[in-house]
Design a binder for these strands. Structure first.
Lengths: 147, 147
DNA sequence: CATGATTATTCATGGGCATGAATAAATATT
DNA sequence: AATATTTATTCATGCCCATGAATAATCATG
């Protein structure tokens, strides 16, 4: 099973109540068919931004139950973005067919300060930046991911 | 630059006219910033289903110019599909947020005989199969990709 | 403070994928 | 038919990513 599925399950489990330790989490996940090591869970916890309270691990208030996580933006950009075009303070990204949405969602999740907003169609993403300069910086960042 | 971008460019170039040889293609791509070897082009040509005619390489009639290609279905399934649920002759696939479309598109492109049709939302794909048995086979295939 | 429990990080490994050099195979030319 | 050219395939390599064993660091307990 995949990392994304595992992390989704972790969030679902935490929605039911806190889990005391990584060891307990390991056991509960094993019951759901996820055979996973402690090191991996430590990483998952960090990636999901979980908090350790007196009662155990809880999800942050910004994370809804079962909210599936996306692969990293650099991975999605590398995989799906075909072209990066600059038009003043706008960036137009061409993607593989039907692939604009996950890329845009991953970008939104990054909360990049240069991004005012995104609009995703089927194979095109419009990224709105504050001005020409920041758009240019953004384009270079994305192109760096493609290299 | 990425493989997908390169293959898209190949298709665009062929839309303008045939290209005689892989060597010529290599040179034309180099002018567009794609530094790529002959072996790779041979593979691209095979993957894109290009045909070698008397005039040179042409795209098949089923391929539109600049039609971006998707990653393999197994790759997309592995990356985005979180759950596979069976309901009689229907399969419900849960994906990461906003990721249903590329997965469904890649499935459609496979022309699996067991698939009557697909319907993709934001994070859910409904796959319609002929009957319970073929749906079950399909589920197992997809689950195999996830392992 | 010593010890045990828990968590984080390092290190090594392996899977998946893409690539090009080298080689094999196929095709074109003379 | 011999040779040159073109294409396909094998082999080796490297990148990216994920993982767990081992270890280091941190925290809790007595």
């Amino acid at each position: 099973m995949s990392k994304a599925a595992r992390q989704k399950t972790i969030l679902e489990l935490l929605h039911r109540g806190p889990i005391e330790s990584q060891e307990e989490l390991q056991g509960v996940l094993a019951k759901r068919g996820f055979d996973v090591g402690q090191a991996t869970l430590s990483r998952d916890i960090r990636e999901l931004g979980l908090m350790k309270t007196y009662d155990g691990y809880v999800a942050g208030s910004g994370v809804s139950p079962g909210e599936p996580v996306l692969p990293s933006v650099s991975r999605l950009v590398r995989e799906f973005v075909l072209e990066v075009r600059l038009a003043q303070n706008l960036l137009v990204l061409k993607t593989s067919v039907g692939s604009a949405q996950p890329v845009a969602a991953a970008m939104d999740a990054e909360d990049w300060p240069e991004v005012v907003g995104t609009l995703a169609g089927d194979d095109t993403i419009l990224v709105i930046s504050q001005d020409n300069k920041t758009a240019h910086q953004l384009a270079r960042r994305i192109e760096g991911m493609l290299a």
